[in-house]
Simulated scan of single mutants.
Amino acid sequence: MATGEVQVGTCKDKTLAEEMAGFSDSAPAVPCTEPHTLETYGTGTLPDAVKALGPARPGPEILAGVAAEACSYDPIRPYLGATAPDQTWGIEVFVKFPTRAEWTAGVRTVLCDLAVGTGGPPRTVLPLRDALRYTDSARLRMCRAGDTMVTCDLPHDGERAGDVDASGADPDRTARCEDAARAYAGGPVPAAVTLRGGTAECWITGETTTTGTVRAGLVAR
């Protein structure tokens, strides 16, 4: 599929790790409800100095150096349907540039793609657009098993319920966390604050391991 024809929400299935890591992607689109590895959440903009290069496409050092600038992280949370308490884990960004032939022809569109999980290539049958609004969103949510971060579809004993104000004494932070956890889960749940740098993370905790999410207000697809 030509780079310039890819729309936001397009999914593609890459079968090899080398394809995932490649600078370009001309694979055909597949339905996002079928196994796929990449989903386009937006298109990026190259710096003017790089866009002006040609006719040959710039080398990998130049492309790698502008990848983070080309694809902003800002649209990701709105694309996923995340609200303030929703914290994600295991989502990676892949930046895809025009092929060499497209670049020579004047195409400068940059695709900003999301992938779920690590290793792989990772595959999913879940569309990522607005995914955090649905009951099957545990695979995208941040949980922990002991001190190890995992997605909430895996066994865990804590689920991130957002951040709270870090000011004040421990009892004050804990009270704010309990309020946040109650809003997140739709009812009273055990919660505790983890201070990480200047951030007060609120975690819903449990004495036993579980799978899935306790997020309230989700709907079935």
Rank of each mutant, 00 (worst) to 15 (best):
R108K: 10
H36W: 02
L38E: 15
G44E: 08
T148K: 09
I62L: 13
D165H: 00
E69H: 09
A2I: 08
A138H: 12
A64F: 13
A145R: 07
G54N: 07
L128H: 08
V30H: 12
P58A: 10
L195H: 00
E39R: 08
T209R: 07
Y73C: 06
P58E: 06
R77P: 03
T88R: 10
D136S: 09
A105I: 00
T213Q: 12
Y79F: 15
T10C: 10
A49E: 14
T210V: 11
T118A: 15
A82M: 05
T210C: 05
I91F: 11
L132M: 03
D48H: 13
W103G: 09
V150K: 06
G198C: 09
V50P: 10
V95D: 12
V107Y: 09
A115C: 08
G168K: 09
V110W: 11
L46I: 03
G146M: 02
E102R: 04
E19T: 14
G168M: 01
A56F: 04
Q87Y: 12
D136G: 07
T88F: 04
A21Q: 13
G158M: 05
V164T: 14
V93Y: 04
R100N: 05
G22E: 15
Q87L: 14
L128R: 15
V93A: 07
A70S: 14
V50F: 08
A200T: 00
D153P: 06
F23H: 08
T208C: 01
E207N: 03
L126E: 15
L140Y: 13
R133M: 15
V6N: 05
G212H: 00
P75I: 06
A67G: 01
Y79E: 03
A56M: 13
A161I: 07
A192D: 15
V50G: 09
T99R: 11
T124C: 01
A52K: 09
T151R: 15
W103L: 09
R173G: 11
